[in-house]
């Protein structure tokens, strides 16, 4: 498998414009086979501080693992906007995510950030694929993440994969979060994700939502921030995005220790329906 090295993390807005244009290729779905890599990525303290504030983390020298996801996100768009991909990032739905933090990463670490697309497989609504991101510091793997996207309508031969979903047991939330109307704008500023369905009512309507929806990775980060002080140096976190959260909105959240780790969810106010479910497992 080839590695394509970029001089720096791509700028997201022009790239996103490319990722919006539909692919004209009507044949079977294709994804790029190469890994994109950027070496020596520095972390901007001011942007980290803003990210932490928007997502509910305290500002620490040690960065949240979801921040490392944000740093890889430009490469997700890069992979799903080029000619060798029939799948466009603007059209996919982020259905689940898992990431592993192998050791604490500090804001002064220089990062080698890479991503590749893999595991394209059929689904009853289209096709699923994974973007696997990795972050290395001085050759050591410190973080990896797998983002699973659904590309509606994409055609891939084979048997449909069922997404494994844990059954959600209604649980009374132990927190209530009020999400302001401009939260999508706030998260866009710190994540660089320019998708207008998070900020524009018009764009949201075009995708079938009555109002803008908050980024799933904000919801993920906000929930992780609630538990983070209790977490060890190395852990894995898996989340499933069950349904979108409309802005502005009020949601419930709960988290509790479970089997040596944590289970958690962001739900409606009653805790009856999940928006996002999460499991955090300490690494051995």
């Amino acid at each position: 498998m080839s590695v394509r090295e970029l001089p720096e993390l791509p700028s997201l807005v022009p790239l996103f414009a490319k990722a919006v244009l539909p692919s004209l290729d009507r044949g079977p779905a294709r994804i790029p086979g190469d890994t994109v890599l950027v070496r020596g990525v520095g972390q901007d303290l001011g942007r980290l501080a803003d990210y932490d504030r928007v997502c509910g983390f305290g500002l620490s020298e040690v960065v949240p693992p979801t921040w490392l996801h944000v740093l890889t996100f430009g490469l997700h768009i890069e992979l799903l906007s080029g000619r060798d991909s029939t799948i466009r990032l603007a059209g996919v739905v982020h259905v689940s995510n898992r990431m592993r933090l192998h050791r604490p990463v500090v804001v002064t670490d220089r990062l080698d950030v890479s991503a590749r697309a893999t595991n394209l497989r059929p689904h009853k609504r289209g096709a699923l694929l994974d973007i696997v991101g990795e972050v290395h510091v001085d050759g050591e793997l410190v973080w990896d993440g797998v983002s699973t996207y659904l590309a509606p309508g994409a055609k891939v031969p084979g048997t449909d994969e069922q997404l494994a979903r844990e059954e959600y047991v209604p649980t009374t939330p132990n927190a209530v979060w009020r999400l302001p109307a401009d939260l999508g704008r706030q998260y866009r500023a710190v994540s660089g994700d320019p998708n207008p369905i998070h900020t524009s009512r018009l764009a949201a309507r075009a995708f079938g939502f009555a109002r803008p929806i908050i980024h799933g990775m904000w919801t993920h980060a906000r929930l992780l921030a609630a538990v983070q002080p209790r977490l060890p140096d190395a852990y894995a976190v898996e989340v499933g995005f069950a349904r979108p959260i409309l802005l502005p909105g009020t949601v419930g959240a709960w988290w509790r220790p479970d089997a040596g780790g944590w289970v958690a969810a962001v739900t409606d106010r009653a805790g009856a329906k999940p928006y996002l479910t999460a499991r955090i497992t300490p690494s051995p």
Binding site: L45, G46, A49, D50, G58, L59, S60, E61, R230
Partner: peptide, 24 residues
Amino acid sequence: AAASNSDLLTAALDGLAARFGLAG
């Protein structure tokens, strides 16, 4: 400049916890 009182105090407590094994 970007750190609040809460951020700074948490950092001091975390360093103390790390130094004397007080985590948890």
